[in-house]
């Protein structure tokens, strides 16, 4: 890839013949999860209390209904070393569910980040 090249998005074949594993139930109630994990049945409320905010479907991580078909996957070819890719792949805009068809919307501009707002970065710790 070259500097300044325009990033592009492409859709891999949605619902391809590739086998998807049988879906596991998504995070059942914590107590049963812990017991199912083989942890002692004496695991008490203290531990549950400490972990109960750890659900994958916490308030601001939108819960998702089960898709009725394999979701489309999106491959983004990023540009290096200049601009990061404007990521275009979203479920239906404004929807908090992964729709069966998982529309790909046109690229939307990166949100304008207010100046002086601290931004933290996630990386693999080194």
């Amino acid at each position: 890839m070259t500097d300044g090249a325009v990033s592009r998005s492409e859709i891999s074949p949605g619902g391809s013949a590739r086998r998807r594993p049988t879906r596991r139930p998504k995070h059942p109630a914590l107590a049963s999860r812990i017991l199912a994990a083989g942890v002692s049945a004496s695991l008490t409320l203290g531990l549950v209390g400490a972990m109960q905010n750890s659900e994958a479907e916490a308030a601001s991580v939108p819960s998702q209904p089960e898709p009725v078909a394999a979701p489309t996957k999106v491959v983004i070819v990023i540009t290096r070393p200049s601009n990061p890719a404007p990521v275009a792949a979203t479920p239906a805009s404004g929807s908090e569910s992964a729709s069966a068809t998982a529309k790909v919307t046109p690229p939307k501009p990166t949100k304008v980040v207010p100046t002086r707002v601290p931004i933290s970065k996630s990386n693999g710790s080194r």
Binding site: P71, K73, V74, V75, I78, V87, A89, T90, A98
Partner: peptide, 13 residues
Amino acid sequence: GSVRISTRLGVFL
């Protein structure tokens, strides 16, 4: 250098 994203990530972009 390619990036693959899950369907749900879009709601956070």
